[in-house]
Design a protein around this nucleic acid. Sequence first.
DNA 1: TGTAATGTTTACCAATCGGTCAAATTATCA
DNA 2: TGATAATTTGACCGATTGGTAAACATTACA
Lengths: 216, 216
Amino acid sequence: MALPRAARTQRRTRIQEEKEERILEAALEVFSLHGFRGATVDQIAEVAGMSKPNLLYYFRTKEAMHRALITRVLDTWLDPLREFDAGGNPVSEIRSYIRRKLEMARDFPRESRLFANEILQGAPNIEDELKGPLKALVDEKAEVIRAWAKAGKIAKCDPYHLIFSIWSTTQHYADFDVQVRAVLGQDQAGDGRFEDAARFLEQLFVTGLGISEQPA
Amino acid sequence: MALPRAARTQRRTRIQEEKEERILEAALEVFSLHGFRGATVDQIAEVAGMSKPNLLYYFRTKEAMHRALITRVLDTWLDPLREFDAGGNPVSEIRSYIRRKLEMARDFPRESRLFANEILQGAPNIEDELKGPLKALVDEKAEVIRAWAKAGKIAKCDPYHLIFSIWSTTQHYADFDVQVRAVLGQDQAGDGRFEDAARFLEQLFVTGLGISEQPA
DNA sequence: TGTAATGTTTACCAATCGGTCAAATTATCA
DNA sequence: TGATAATTTGACCGATTGGTAAACATTACA
């Protein structure tokens, strides 16, 4: 018989570790390319190099795979924001936050697209996590930014929309990669586009948030 | 017999006009919510208030509907960029471009999500249009911006990444609406968020692009 | 009004989907 | 080694999918 994942009390087998990892890797590949509905279990099984029933032995449903992936991705996706340091220098904190987010868009585009897909579909599976942990974290960091602005260390601005704009500009290079490449053309679409983007965004945000005599 | 759309030489019937419009409206609703693969013809037919075979009489395949929608959306989506005036005042041109894009995100979120979905999936159906007309238009406007920078009217910056950042920040409020609402919470998630966003983005870009002594 | 073109519906189909089952195989360890 | 638990597979199932065929109804127009 042997019950898979769900009803286990003992610790995981070596085989379980390996296979579950292979499956999630394959699922990330397929889900990020075709979305949840567009991905098929057969596809994932093929990419993972195993039969469909074998895959379903480890994850009982397609949704279980997706849930495992989404929660994992959401967690690591927020790491850069967690590193945001209230005690640091405002400008350099924002600058390195942008840099880290851009690096994630470059190095983990599949994770970014998986997340984007989920949000686009209305986030049916992670609405609670958005309204809970995500909101809490953003609230906390927004308060830091607001304090910086109040102290005159950066320009007065809405901290939430500042965070949104950093998210959107950086993730754009992962989620809309096809469009970016199409517009830049073959010559400019090499890996240098991330350095160009970094330079531009740094200039935009640092200058845009530099101390200035904005009215309230 | 009666051949639908494809093989007609005469002008369209009144019924055809009406029905095709109703179908595309329904298709936009469903496609933007669930993506291409996630949407079903039955769903679209139900939203359009007609039977599935009747719908397929006007659009022979699901893909035909999607193609008709995508090309239409891509076209109107570029309108704000077309209005970008080389002869105008640089700062106010950029400012009103941002405003127009943000208005589109507010008033036509379904169109934005449809487009985002297509790009996320690798733009299988519109790659040519991206590399062709879209790139041409962006190239043209980028040249205008570059000239402005060269003349010292705005800060020196990469015009392509400037355009990307305007696209991403504004469309974020349509495509990631669920996330934005979740983070802002019930109190702040009213329609006022678009005005707040407009104020923030205007400040960010105008200050960020203001004349400054950036090195080359 | 008659009739031909246009439009609509009912019934249906083949393909694909997520998932099951029982038998066969392999790993584990006393 | 032998027995027990864990893993893998091929065959299969019901539901849903995109799309079709042909009968039926309606409209346009001479």
